[in-house]
Design a binder for these strands. Structure first.
Length: 919
DNA sequence: ACCGTCACG
DNA sequence: GACGTACGTGACGGTA
């Protein structure tokens, strides 16, 4: 009897979390089922554990019956401010019951009680009977129940929650947790607690005094201050909160414990449920698990998906610590011609990372980890036995460069840079993050953990669980070999499994071209750009920092004087209070957090009304921004080894196919104001060299003219006219500063997906006037209207848009019933083909640039940066005249021969000693 | 961790 | 009839 183990699934809280964590899938009937799918796979995994040592013998799902419980009688504000669940989650609640029934599991709910109380009652009863209990939830209230024999399982993060976890998180054990929760309150459930008491203070008080009552009793003797005052004033709220967080553990059990026994799950109802929703991969799994004969009906509709493999088995992975073993793996990889590769390092920045180990995978669960830079976990222990670094790299190098062996990586640009710095070239390669992006951009992220959950129903070992977090966090080189092997080899194993799934989908879903011809070729190009970095003048940045600091201090004093009191100018909350309450200026609340908007529009409005302090705050903000984000931060980013700044480009960051840039972001260096431009002047060339900047002129408008086939626009571009002037003439009948500025705004509005209100706000006209301009635009430029309508119709039908080169961006919200969600998706869908085509073109130019320069005998021209429509080079002064026409030609012809554009692509080039001067 | 803000195309 | 309005990013400081 002692071996009985009851699993209690907190169904309601699971689907809320699943809804927010998982991608918004829809089933074959178009109903949203993301959370239900997550729930189904979770139940499956739990039920699968039936025969495992620590698996469930009994299981039940507990749901909340309704929104009200006895706690509402105690406190009418309980859970009062909770917003209604999202619209596309609501229909999933009843489906949860269907799913539970499909597994033939008991589904328990009781009027007047919350799921937590029923769970507590079952848990106590089971413990009394000598059973073990696992509660499938990560709800902090339920953590109060933890005691020997009872733990929580967080399936979303695949982690057990025990007393140690509670102590780590809340500072007290499960027995005191209720007191801590009572003192701190819970904003989600609207449990008040004591104002000003958060988790830290609550834990400290409870540790010191024992429980809530003792804390309240001790309050009058505490040192005078806000805390003492609040404890005394809100003592009753504290007592009430303590009661509200207490779980009721004596609810009469609707079903006896024995009725929860978990047996074999009958297949027919489960199959019917899965097929109803079109969960094909799960249906396939059902067939495999049950070894049922596969009928034509269940076998037929299979797209190029891949059947189930053995689940990831950490114990199957091998730690390779001898040269003989390494040679065997290299030989087998060479013979097979395809191997998944992953590197482990001690930093996320590939330009600072030291190589710690390499993992390889050849088949599911056939994976190894080759440690080469591990040390003992602490000062006392020796480094583990491992192959000498140089010897290991020497053995791996031929494999990594072998033209007959395909190396598969997930975000392999990182590994390519790290390995290149270690002296190894990686070619040829495939990258599963780029495959996922080509296939599913817009549907979900493309990180390994997220994709493993989606495609493998597998939770990867969390990096945090391997290296820890906070103060005690280790470098990966300090992780012990067994854990390191589990983690690292799993990454390679998972990458191998991704490749097997994605590769056949590329051609089936018509994205091979974008993957093979646009994105993948860019990886080595970006790797080289990142490794090159760009020189910045540290002294110049330091001078600017000092200059800005002085101006900031002056403005701060003036602002405080005008406000009549010192305050934190950088706090929107404080600033809003000062401006709109203390100084009594006009302005309205905005945003759900209830703070006044103090953004640039609002402050400009005030400044125009002659409010001096508003202008000064704007100036302060600009300088503070420039100092903290640029002049201070960039100095920190100078790599000590190279003396240059190395950004990292993301290929999958922007849904449209644009690159992103981070650590540091070099795609948002100031240029629009004179002060900001000084920062660009600090990006300089080496002596004897210059910076060359080449940018596409109006590329998105040109592409819009081509894609929407607008004769007037195409002709104007062909003649080389100023397009904003033309628009001004067509819309307003005359060209002057004002009409040109308005025309420019309208041209952008078209690219971004227009709304009369949006345009009205920008132009400061009424929505009716804005609508009149839009109508006139459509009339003067026929084609635009049709393009927008066709793009939307197509997106609604297939769920994605396509660029001229075949890049897809998915819009799962394009048919949303919530208006503003749908409209947001529509605007993005109008813009995506244009922005995306522009991104495709410059990517193609980048891939062709180095061979073209080499062919022109210009090997010393180095491409350093890409800023969406601009490429930045560093080159010997003497090469400028020869390089400029090559660069211009490559960029202007980058769409060809794949796409013949009906507008020319203009390229503007400038050079100078700095990036600022090159513009 | 989230928000508000603001730098860029 | 109200909602909050342009598309795509990343980084910072303040706050909970």
């Amino acid at each position: 009897m002692a071996s009985n183990h009851l699993y209690l699934v907190d169904g309601s809280s699971y689907i809320f979390r699943a809804y927010h964590r998982l991608p918004p899938l829809t089933n074959i009937h178009g109903q949203p089922v993301g959370a239900v799918y997550g729930y189904t796979t979770m139940l499956w995994k739990l039920a699968d554990g039936l025969r495992k040592a620590d698996g469930p013998t009994h299981m039940a799902v507990i749901l909340d019956h309704s929104a009200k419980s006895f706690r509402n009688d105690l406190f009418d504000q309980y859970k009062a401010h909770r917003p209604p669940p999202p619209e596309d989650l609501v229909p999933q609640f009843p489906m949860i019951r269907d799913a539970t029934r499909a597994f033939s599991l008991p589904c328990i709910e009781e009027e007047g009680f919350e799921a937590d109380d029923i769970i507590a009652s079952y848990a106590k009863a089971a413990l009394r009977a000598g059973w073990s209990v696992t509660i499938v939830s990560s709800d902090k209230d339920l953590m109060q129940l933890i005691e020997p024999g009872l733990d929580l399982l967080d399936t979303m993060n695949n982690r057990r929650i025990d007393a140690d976890y509670v102590v780590e998180k809340f500072g007290v054990g499960p027995d005191r947790l209720g007191d801590v929760l009572g003192l701190m309150g819970d904003s989600v459930d609207n449990i008040p607690g004591v104002p000003g008491v958060g988790p830290k203070t609550a834990a400290k008080l409870i540790l010191e005094h024992g429980d809530v009552e003792a804390v309240l009793a001790a309050a009058p003797a505490m040192k005078p201050g806000k805390l003492r005052e609040n404890l005394i004033e809100h003592a009753d709220m504290a007592r009430l909160s303590r009661i509200l967080v207490t779980l009721k553990d004596d609810v009469p059990l609707p079903d006896p414990l024995d009725a929860l026994a978990l047996g074999d799950i009958p297949e027919p109802p489960l199959r019917a449920f899965l097929e109803h929703h079109g969960f094909r991969s799960l249906v396939a799994k059902l067939g495999a698990v049950a070894e049922a004969p596969v009928t034509a009906a269940t076998a037929a509709p299979a797209p190029p998906t891949v059947g189930p493999e053995a689940p990831c088995d950490h114990d199957a992975y091998e730690a390779v610590t001898t040269l003989d073993a390494l040679d065997r793996w290299v030989a087998e990889a060479t013979a097979q011609g395809i191997v998944a590769v992953d590197t482990e390092t001690d930093s996320l920045d590939p330009m600072r990372a030291n190589l710690v180990g390499v993992s390889l995978a050849l088949a599911p669960n056939k994976a190894c980890y080759i440690p080469i830079g591990h040390v003992g976990g602490d000062l006392l222990s020796d480094a583990p036995v491992q192959i000498d670094r140089a010897a290991a790299i020497a053995r791996l190098k031929p494999l990594l460069a072998d033209p007959a062996v395909l190396k598969i990586g997930h975000n392999i640009k990182y590994d390519i840079i790290v390995l290149a710095r270690a002296g190894a070239e990686v070619t040829p390669f495939d990258d599963t993050i780029l495959m996922s992006f080509a296939l599913d951009a817009g549907l979900h992220g493309h990180g390994m953990d997220e994709l493993a959950t989606i495609h493998l129903s597998h939770s990867c070992i969390a990096y945090k669980d391997v290296v820890g977090s906070g103060r005690n966090q280790l470098g990966f080189h300090q992780v012990d070999l067994k854990r390191a092997t589990h983690y690292a080899a799993e990454d390679a194993d998972v990458t191998w499994r991704f490749h097997r799934r994605f590769r056949p989908r590329l051609s089936a879903e018509q994205v091979t071209r974008i993957y093979e011809r646009v994105d993948r070729p860019l990886v080595p190009v970006l790797a080289r750009m990142e490794r090159r970095g760009i020189k910045v003048d540290r002294a110049q940045l330091a001078r600017l920092s000092a200059d800005f600091a002085q101006q900031i201090a002056g403005l701060e004093a003036e602002i405080h004087a005008l406000a009549g009191t010192p305050f934190t100018i950088g706090s929107p909350k404080q600033l809003g209070d000062i401006l709109f309450e203390q100084m009594g200026l006009k302005g309205g609340r905005k945003g759900k957090s209830g703070v006044y908007s103090t953004d640039v529009n609002e402050l400009e409005r005030l400044a125009a009304d002659g409010v001096d302090v508003a202008r000064k705050v704007l100036d302060w903000r600009q300088l503070a921004k420039l100092k903290s984000t640029y002049t201070d931060a960039l100095q920190q980013q100078i790599n000590p080894e190279t003396g240059r700044v190395h950004t990292s480009y993301g290929l999958t960051g922007a849904q449209t196919g644009r690159l992103s840039s981070n650590d540091p972001n070099l795609q948002n260096i100031p240029v629009r104001t004179e002060t900001g431009r000084q920062i660009r002047d600090a990006f300089i060339a080496e002596p004897g060299n210059v910076i060359l900047s080449a940018d596409y002129s109006q590329i998105e408008l040109r592409l819009a003219a081509h894609m929407a086939d607008v004769p007037a626009l195409k002709e104007a571009f062909a003649r080389g006219e100023d397009i904003h002037n033309l628009t001004a003439l067509e819309l307003f009948g005359e060209v002057n500063r004002d009409t040109r500025a308005r025309a420019k705004t309208i041209n952008f509005a078209i690219l971004y997906g227009i709304s009369r209100w949006g345009l009205a706000g920008r132009l400061e006209v009424t929505p009716d006037e804005a609508q009149a301009m839009i109508d006139r635009y459509f009339e003067r430029f026929p084609g635009i209207n049709r393009y927008i309508a066709e793009t939307l119709t197509h997106a609604r039908e297939v769920g994605y848009t396509t660029t001229l080169f075949g890049r897809k961006t998915h819009f799962p919200r394009i048919n949303a019933r919530v208006q503003h969600e749908r409209q947001g998706a529509e605007r993005a869908a109008i813009n995506a083909p244009i922005q995306g085509t522009s991104a495709d073109i410059i990517k193609r130019a980048m891939a062709q640039m180095e061979p073209a320069l080499a062919a022109a005998g210009l090997p010393n021209v180095r491409m350093l940066l890409q800023v969406h429509d601009e490429l930045v080079f560093e080159l010997p002064e003497t090469d400028v005249d020869a390089a400029s026409p090559v660069i211009r030609a490559v960029m202007a012809a980058a769409a060809e021969p794949a796409v013949k554009l009906s507008v020319p692509l203009g390229v503007e080039i400038g050079t100078g000693p700095s990036w600022g001067a090159a513009h």
